[in-house]
């Protein structure tokens, strides 16, 4: 009987917590068999860099989904704040005459605008009591149109080479965006699992009424979650615009919301909210990247990659449902 209990425990333990990690390992093994090039450091770093932009947003998305909400506006907000950041940079560069200061101003403006956009979503959702899906669908349209307007539907290019460089540097052998994603994940993971805010966030997503009766300020918790995802969008937009030293207002951030939500779900955070895992989301994002990379290397038409991604998302949710 006790061995019975043990195996039952074993199954539960492994499956629940490490399902996405196991999936990633399996994917790694298959990929390295299929292509000898796969395991090369440069390729792995490339994959990580590619997923880091939406990966960073997915970290914020994890918080929002745990709270029981969703944010569809992330892609549009990314384009908007990316453009605004560069415009601020270009504006201040001749005024302050110091590239470092100007770049810093550009980055700060982008992060602030991102947080503000998130706060706006949060405000309408909590104070206005409008469903997150509706609010962020609305702001998705609004911010895309605003960014097209300020960039004339074209490119907003930065006048600073320094800005174009910093996102391409490496820290501890890792590309800057990857490093940022990992540091952010470490911080948010502690925040989610070991702080009062994280506990309240899960309580709100689990049952908002119980949370309210338990003296949790539900509106404040939700508001902060949307502000936080706004900040992650600001960070991602800065890194991405630095990569090209420009923002294409019509293309940047397209389908980011899908990739971010997919990473969260594949990582094992249930859509219903109430609990979730930050490192799971990182793994979810990497899984998506590895699949893309494999399909490229195998010469599969890029048009079909969306199909595979879709199947993976649906499959992940299906497995989750079996578990519950």
């Amino acid at each position: 009987m006790s061995s019975n209990a043990l195996t039952a425990n074993f199954k539960k333990f492994n499956y629940e917590k490490y399902a996405s990690l196991i999936a990633l390992v399996v994917l790694f093994i298959i990929s390295s068999i299929l292509s000898p090039y796969f395991l090369q450091v440069q390729n792995i770093l490339n994959i990580l860099r590619q997923v880091s932009y939406t990966g960073i947003i997915a970290l914020g998305m994890t918080f929002v989904i745990i709270s029981g909400g969703i944010d569809l506006s992330v892609g549009s907000v990314a384009a908007f704040v990316g453009a605004v950041g560069i415009i601020a940079l270009n504006y201040f560069l001749p005024i302050v005459g110091n590239e470092y200061i100007a770049v810093t101003i550009g980055i700060v403006v982008a992060l602030l605008m991102g947080s503000l956009a998130g706060a706006l979503n949060g405000f309408m959702i909590t104070r206005g009591k409008i469903a997150p899906f509706i609010v962020t669908l609305g702001t998705m349209a609004i911010f895309r149109s605003l960014s097209l307007f300020i960039g004339n539907a074209g490119e907003v290019r930065s006048d600073s080479n320094l800005f174009g460089n910093f996102g391409m540097n490496s820290v501890l052998f890792l590309p800057v965006p990857v490093f940022v994603m990992l540091v952010l994940a470490a911080v948010l993971s502690v925040m989610l699992n070991q702080t009062r805010y994280g506990r309240y966030l899960c309580a709100v997503g689990s049952n908002a009424r119980v949370a309210a009766y338990s003296a949790v300020n539900v509106d404040r918790i939700k508001f902060l979650a949307y502000t936080l995802i706004g900040l992650t969008v600001g960070i991602s937009a800065t890194l991405l615009s630095s990569r090209f030293n420009a923002v294409s207002t019509s293309n940047m951030g397209m389908f980011f919301e899908l990739d971010a939500i997919a990473a969260v779900i594949i990582g094992g955070t249930p859509m219903t909210g109430g609990r979730g895992t930050i490192w799971g989301t990182v793994i979810g994002a990497i899984i998506l990247g590895v699949i893309n990379n494999m399909l490229n290397m195998l010469g599969v038409s890029p048009y079909l990659q969306g199909t595979v991604k879709g199947i993976v998302i649906i499959g992940a949710v299906y497995i989750q449902r079996q578990r519950a």
């Binding site: 899960c202 309580a203 689990s206 049952n207 009424r209 119980v210 949370a211 109430g274 609990r275």
Partner: peptide, 9 residues
């Protein structure tokens, strides 16, 4: 269950 405890906690 409606307003007292969190069954998922």
């Amino acid at each position: 269950q409606g307003s007292g405890i969190l069954t998922g906690f």
